[in-house]
Design a protein around this nucleic acid. Structure first.
Lengths: 192, 192
DNA sequence: TGCAGAATGTGATGTAGATCACCTAAGCCC
DNA sequence: GGGCTTAGGTGATCTACATCACATTCTGCA
């Protein structure tokens, strides 16, 4: 399935666009390919695009002063990612994005998104719902952080994204859960 | 300042509505007053409204199996709150909302919001941006949870909302930070 | 105005998970 | 294909915070 069809199927779940409108919208996306390990956004960069994943897996992460990494999001096909804080506030990137595997993405600039949203009401509708889902997911994860211990969060993650177990090295899963790789290792070796 | 003017000032920061459009939009909001301690949404309720705070302070919270409370959000004037998960997915409330002080709010039904969004492009624009800000705040809080210890999060919270220190009992601040009230107490009594 | 319940402080003790140190196995690259 | 880097496992120790227990205000309201 080609990128255009994937995006079309994705958007048509929440918004009704005519073919002309969709073609117009799609004309603002630039396809791009990346190799495993390649950076898409690095800390300190100027950020002016967001990315829609067609294939592969990205991670959006934050590195703190003690060089510890925290993963905010794994981005799988049909997910969107970027440093949205930097993108919307026109500040430098504090969140980085790179490729866990080879990946194809569609790039959309902040400017183009805003232009399209103001020109096509249904596009604005789509982006409202997309953000909405992100907000709900983020709240849910926050609650899980407060309420559950590491083991419960690990199981929750694997129940939600079983593919991750094989696709993603364990120390990245630890960085998503916010625990040390040692603790995670002990965790799933204990109950087998 | 009356509720209508407060909402108008709030919305006009991100969207441009004509007076007629705003009047139409405003006609869908129902003002309501609550007393300190009163519940607005209780676990298990059917949720069909969201709430815009005019005065007072609300809290949105979750109670887990061990009857421990976690506060997702303090809602101050010009903030919006609800159990958005339940509201958008038409499920029963898992998040509750009640009043920390006497409060006035404007109620907007989910149905009316969607109707207005489809009728007025700029209203949809406003709600996209509102959700966006919520999403960014939620991501920031998640990062803070992973990266900072309790003391840093406590100081961050008070730096952001100095009013809270006097307005809100300490055990609620602990419930927001996700620590026990004992730990919080020891924390700010240590460094004085 | 007096008292019941809520809010807060503080000691003692238990524990999940961090950190450090070191080891093994598996990719990957010239 | 040999060496080097990255991923992963495991023991020992340390620490922030939870939990329990109880004392001490504060506060709203009968």
């Amino acid at each position: 399935m080609d990128p255009k069809e994937i995006l079309k199927a994705h958007i048509s779940k929440t918004a009704t666009l005519t073919d002309e409108q969709f073609d117009y919208l799609f004309s603002h996306f630039k396809p791009k390919s990346f190799k495993k390990g390649q950076a898409i956004i690095s800390e300190g960069d100027k950020v002016d695009h967001e990315y829609f994943v067609i294939s592969g897996c990205l991670k959006a992460f934050f590195i703190n002063d003690e060089i510890k990494m925290y993963i905010l999001q794994f981005a799988m096909p049909t997910w969107w990612t970027s440093d949205y804080g930097a993108l919307y506030n026109h500040t430098r990137a504090t969140i980085s994005v790179d490729c866990i595997s080879d990946a194809e993405v569609l790039c959309l600039s902040n400017e183009d998104r805003e232009k399209i949203c103001s020109e096509i009401h249904q596009a604005e509708h789509f982006f409202r719902w997309r953000t909405n889902r992100g907000y709900l997911a983020s709240q849910k994860r926050l609650l899980s952080f407060m309420n559950n211990d590491t083991k419960a969060r690990y199981e929750e993650l694997l129940a939600m994204y079983p593919q991750l177990y094989n696709l993603v090295p364990k120390h990245l899963i630890a960085a998503y859960l916010g625990v040390s790789r040692e603790t995670l290792s002990r965790l799933y070796n204990a109950h087998k």
